[in-house]
Design a protein around this nucleic acid. Structure first.
Lengths: 338, 338
DNA sequence: ACTCGTTTTTGAATCGTTTCATTTGTTACG
DNA sequence: CGTAACAAATGAAACGATTCAAAAACGAGT
C-alpha cells in the first residue's frame, strides 16, 4: 500500500488484462459496463495514479508546452503566461514557464530542458539568436511560436504587437495635446523599445516644429526611471521637455515619482507623461498614468492557437498575427500645456 | 535525420553498446577516453537529446518539484517561487509552478497533475483542506512542505513567517510614534491576515489609551484599498484614525492614493500608513511606504532545503521553520502626530 | 446445434533509458 | 608463460503505460 500501484496491479486486483485497464482509462466505450465498474473499483481501492512518464514514453510526446519569457516578474509577461495556460488547459495541455531573465544562456538552458521533456511546442520571447535552434526543433517536429516578436513567416509563426504603431500613438497623442518638445525614455538596445522609439520619431517628423530627445534609461525598472526623473528635475525649467514618453510603465512610474516628490514640477501641467503596457498600477498611480495598452490575453491565447495550427499542418504552415496597441488616456497627459 | 535520435542510434553510429552510451552520459569515469570521444562525437552529429520520460520511467521518479501558490501575480509569491527555482536548480531539479488562485478545486487539480508527474516533492501554500491528500502523498513517498503556513509537525514540514509578530511589530511601531487611534484594513477571513490582526490587537492592548478599528477590505488589491481610503476621506477629521495598518502593500498603496489624491489628508502628518510584504513598489510610492518585510528568498530556499531533508529521512522527520518579519520604516510613518 | 457477426477481452510488443551481472581486454607480476 | 587484478565494454532485463492483432464470448438467426 505504501508504494504506488501500477496498471498491472490494478489488472491483477480486478482480474482482467492490463489492456483492459488501459481501455477503461482511454476508451471507456470499448469496455462492458460490468468490467468497467470492477476496474474502477480496483483503481479506487489501490489509489492508482497514472504514470505520466510511461504514458509519454509510449506516446512519444508529452502534453506539455514550453514557454520562455524575458521576466515573469513583469506584469506584461505574467499576464501573457496566464492566458496561455488557460488556453492550453482547454486543449488538455500544461504550460511550463521558464524565465530567461534576458540572459541568452538561461534561454538556451530552458530550450534544452524543454527538448528533453519532448514538449509539444515552444512559445518563446527570444533574447538571443535562436533562429538556428528553432530550425532544429522544427525538423524534429517541435513547432515554435515567437511571442512579442515578429517572425520570418518562412520559419515559424509569431504573435506580436505593433510596437512602432504603439510608439506612434503615444507620441501623436502628446503632440495632439499641444506639446512640442518631447523626450523618450527607454533602452533602445531592446528591439521592442527601438520600434516604439521609431514610431514616436515618425509622429514627431510629421509636425514641423516638434522634436524628440532620447534618454537611455539603462534598465526598464522603477528605479532606473527615478534616476531619469531626477536628471529632469535638475534641469532648468526651459530645458525640460514638455512631455515624456517612457517605453514601459515601470519607467514611467519611476519618472513620475521623481517629478512629483519635489513638487516643483507638476504633472501634467508642466510635463505630460505617458507609459507603455498599461499595467494594473498605471491607473492607480498618484497621477493616473496614460499608457499604451497591449492585448496580453489575446497574445497568450493566440500563441496557443498558432501552435495548434502548426501541429495540425505538421509544421509547414506558418502565420504571423500582429495586434494593434491601444491608447489609454488618463490624467497624466490631460489638458494643454502652458 | 528528421526524427529524434535515440540512445540506440547513437550506439550504432559510434559502434558501441547502448550501455556504454548511457555510461558516457551518466558515469563518464567508467568509460575510456577514446570511446568517450567517439560517443560524444556521434551524439553531436546525430543531435541526440535525452528522452526525459524514459529516464524518469526507469528512475521511478522525476527531477521535478511541484509548487502550488495562491497567486503568481502577487509579488510575494513570485519572489518565493523564484527563490525556490534557484535553490532547486542547484540540486538539479526543476520547479513546476501551479497557480491555485485561492480556489480549492484548482488546487486539487494541480495536486493530481503533480502526482501523475511523479514529482519528487510538493511545496504548497494551501487554500483548501489538504491534510488528507498530504497524508496519502507521504505514504507514497512524496514529501510535502507547507509554505507560508505553519504545519502540524507530526504530519509534514513547513516554512512560514510569524504573522502575529509581524502584526505586532507594525502596530507597536505606530503606537511608538505616538499614534493612539489605529485602524486595521484587510480580509480577516484569510488566516495570515487574521494572525496579523491578532498581533496588532495585542500591541494595542498593551497601551492603555489605544484602540484599533477593523475595516474589512473584501479583497487584497489596490482597488479595494482605494475604496477603504475613500471611506476614510469622507469621515470628519476627528473620526479618522491617526494611523492605518494594511494587511498588505497593495491595499496600503490603494489607501495612500485615495488619501493623497484629495490633498485634504496628509501622510504621515494626519494619518500614518504602514503596509505588509515590502514589495518593490513600496519604496517607490508617492510617499515611501513603511512596511513589514518578509524574507521571501529565505522562504523559497528553505522550502527546498526542508524538502531535501524530508527525502533524506524518507519522509519520517519533519521540521518547521518560522521566520521573523522585519519592520521597515519609511516616510509614511515618520514623525509624531499633531 | 451450428454459423456468422459483433462486442469484449487478451497479452505480447513497444517506447528509450538505466542498471548490473557478465564478458572481454589490459596490465603487472611471479 | 600463466594468472591475478583491475578496467572497460556488453547487452538483456526492467520501468509502466498504450496499441493492436488475435482470441474469446456473446447473440441472433436458421
Amino acid at each position: 500500500m505504501s508504494q504506488t500501484a501500477s496498471i498491472k496491479d490494478v489488472a491483477t486486483h480486478a482480474q482482467v488484462a492490463v489492456g483492459t485497464v488501459s481501455n477503461v482509462l482511454n476508451y471507456p466505450d470499448r469496455v462492458s459496463q460490468r468490467t468497467k465498474e470492477r476496474v474502477l473499483k480496483s483503481i479506487a481501492e489501490l489509489g492508482f495514479v497514472r504514470n505520466d512518464a510511461a504514458r509519454q514514453l509510449r506516446a512519444g510526446q508529452s502534453r506539455t508546452i514550453g514557454l520562455i519569457v524575458l521576466d515573469v516578474g513583469n506584469p506584461f509577461f505574467s499576464s501573457v503566461a496566464r492566458a496561455a495556460e488557460d488556453a492550453a488547459a482547454a486543449l488538455g495541455s500544461v504550460v511550463l514557464v521558464g524565465d530567461s531573465g534576458q540572459d541568452a544562456s538561461r534561454e538556451a538552458h530552458y530550450m534544452d530542458l524543454f527538448q528533453e521533456q519532448r514538449v509539444q511546442g515552444l512559445l518563446i520571447s527570444p533574447v538571443g539568436d535562436v533562429g538556428q535552434r528553432i530550425d532544429t526543433l522544427r525538423e524534429r517536429g517541435v513547432p515554435t511560436v515567437l511571442v512579442d516578436e515578429l517572425a520570418d513567416t518562412e520559419r515559424c509563426s509569431s504573435v506580436s504587437v505593433d510596437d512602432e504603431e504603439g510608439g506612434y500613438l503615444a507620441a501623436k497623442h502628446l503632440l495632439d495635446t499641444g506639446r512640442r518638445r518631447l523626450a523618450f525614455v527607454g533602452t533602445p538596445s531592446i528591439r521592442q523599445v527601438a520600434s516604439r522609439l521609431k514610431g514616436a520619431q515618425r509622429a514627431v517628423s510629421e509636425v514641423s516644429d516638434a522634436g524628440i530627445e532620447v534618454l537611455d534609461s539603462e534598465g526598464q525598472t522603477v528605479l532606473t526611471g527615478r534616476k531619469v526623473g531626477n536628471s529632469l528635475v535638475e534641469r532648468s525649467p526651459e530645458e525640460r521637455p514638455e512631455a515624456v514618453f517612457c517605453s514601459n510603465d515601470l519607467l514611467a512610474l519611476g519618472v513620475m515619482q521623481s517629478l512629483t516628490m519635489l513638487r516643483t514640477v507638476r504633472i501634467p501641467e508642466d510635463i505630460a507623461l505617458i507609459g507603455y503596457d498599461d499595467i494594473d498600477f498605471a491607473i492607480s498611480a498618484v497621477v493616473p498614468l496614460s499608457s499604451i495598452r497591449q492585448p496580453t490575453e489575446a497574445l497568450g491565447r493566440t500563441a496557443i492557437e498558432l501552435l495548434a495550427e502548426e501541429q495540425e499542418s505538421g509544421g509547414t504552415k506558418h502565420r504571423s498575427v500582429v495586434f494593434t496597441p491601444e491608447l489609454v488616456v488618463r490624467q497624466s497627459t490631460a489638458g494643454a500645456p502652458k
